[in-house]
Amino acid sequence: MGDLILYGHPDSGHSYKVKLALTVLDLAHEYREVEVFAPRDARRADWREVSRFGEIPVLIDDGKAIVQSDAILLHLARTRNALGWEVDPDRLTEWMFWEANRIGISLPNLRLCKHFEQGGDAGLIAWLEGRLQADLDRLETVLAGQPFLMGEAVSAADLACCGYLFFADQVDLDLVRWSAVSAWLDRIRGLPGWGHPYDLMGAR
Rank of each mutant, 00 (worst) to 15 (best):
I56C: 09
C113R: 01
H75V: 04
M1W: 04
L191T: 10
F166W: 09
R102S: 00
W98K: 07
P108M: 11
D158P: 08
T93Q: 13
A126H: 10
G2K: 01
F53M: 07
D186Q: 03
A160G: 07
G151K: 01
I72E: 15
E94V: 09
A183E: 11
W184V: 13
D41Y: 08
R32S: 00
L159Q: 02
W95L: 09
Q146S: 02
L132T: 14
Q118V: 07
L4T: 05
D174S: 05
V18L: 00
E152K: 14
F166I: 12
E129A: 15
H14G: 01
D61N: 04
A45F: 04
D186L: 07
S12N: 00
V176W: 02
F166L: 15
H9T: 06
W95H: 14
V87I: 13
E99P: 11
L132G: 10
K114A: 13
Y31D: 10
R131V: 01
D90S: 15
L173R: 01
V181L: 00
A38M: 03
L136A: 08
E49A: 09
A100Y: 01
G54Q: 14
L143E: 01
T141M: 03
I56K: 08
F148S: 07
Y198H: 15
K19F: 05
G193N: 10
L110H: 13
R204F: 06
L143Y: 13
